[in-house]
Design a protein around this nucleic acid. Structure first.
Lengths: 184, 184
DNA sequence: CATTTACGTTAAATATACTAAGCAAGAAAA
DNA sequence: TTTTCTTGCTTAGTATATTTAACGTAAATG
């Protein structure tokens, strides 16, 4: 199974945090007060429509509601050697941490040898990503846009757009990038 | 009102992306196939319990499901000068883009003058963040953990833990960091 | 003290979601 | 072609969510 996701407790905590009584919230949300009580006791599994109406009364977005709080993380620091190599070769992707399952963020230290290329077949994934070029120069292609970025320049885009990276300089290109959710 | 949140379209897109038919997904999720059809046509408003079961079949987390897709982004590249300074002084935070409202990710190019410090009063916010030290050395304190990171080393933590950055070296310290959701 | 107001909960009635079975259209196999 | 499988959709019956209205308690008000 899964984390039970104590929806009732979550809603109650949010409601209290916003300083509403069940009836106040119900009125603001335009629903009956009973439903708040029942949901908070997990005596009913509300429809998403209902939940949305209730959360609009706070107001809290669905995404925010489900953005679950994780237990305090243990691993905080990473030695240079601990950035695990996930590609190797002309293009090096060194990832911060091995297990991304509980991470909201994937951070990479990328190195492109001169001429290195992520390939003609452009990449796509469901995420957003961005990065800063730290050294060298890197050609970035996103959709129909293309540009050569120098050290200090940066990019940001929706990863669903086809994209490609290429080191067009004579020296190694170094980038620190981030991606959410981890999907590469 | 709000974005109508076309739940049906969203589910259908995810299902297709994962290469499942309605019946396949239904079987994996342990629900009847009709419900997939009905949900995708927005002919029913599923309970969160039901939606969770369905998404578990993909698998996709609720939070991920509601993490809304934005329209194709316009701005992709940023010149070094376009990283807007949001702090200034001994500590420099240069942020990628001015408007974070439609971003899932906040990316900063940070510079700490020798001795620079984010302060005794430790920072807290609802997010996760991580970064890679690009140059210099930086002391990072998270909760009760403390460490001096050299260039090439990295950190990652839950931003709700109190945290603090301090340049204990003689040279400037440079970090590229990312934070989701944008909250600093 | 009695009265009012607000609180969360519960019961019965109603509305709606979910299941199981069957339908028609298209693709693949014989 | 016919047969068979898969696709997505629809309907009737059952399970469950939601509403309305009432209940019991506690704190404020007269």
């Amino acid at each position: 199974m899964d984390q039970p996701f104590d929806l009732g407790q979550r809603l109650k905590a949010l409601r209290i945090a916003h300083g509403f009584s069940q009836r106040e919230l119900a009125k603001r949300a335009g629903v009956s007060n009973a439903v708040i009580s029942l949901i908070e006791q997990n005596k009913t599994s509300p429809s998403v429509g209902m939940l949305k109406k209730v959360l609009d009364g706070l107001p809290v977005a669905l995404a925010e509601f489900f953005s679950w709080e994780a237990p305090p993380r243990s691993r905080v620091f990473f030695a240079a050697e601990e950035l695990v190599e996930i590609a190797g070769g002309a293009v090096s992707y060194r990832q911060l941490g091995r297990d991304l399952s509980e991470r909201a963020l994937q951070i990479l230290h990328e190195r492109y040898a001169p001429g290195a290329d992520t390939g003609e077949a452009m990449l796509r994934h469901e995420a957003e990503e961005g990065g800063v070029v730290v050294a060298g120069e890197l050609e970035v292609t996103v959709g129909d846009q293309r540009r050569v970025l120098q050290a200090g320049e940066a990019y940001y885009f929706d990863s669903r757009l086809p994209h490609r990276f290429r080191n067009v300089g004579e020296a190694e290109a170094v980038v620190v990038s981030a991606c959410t959710p981890p999907s590469f």
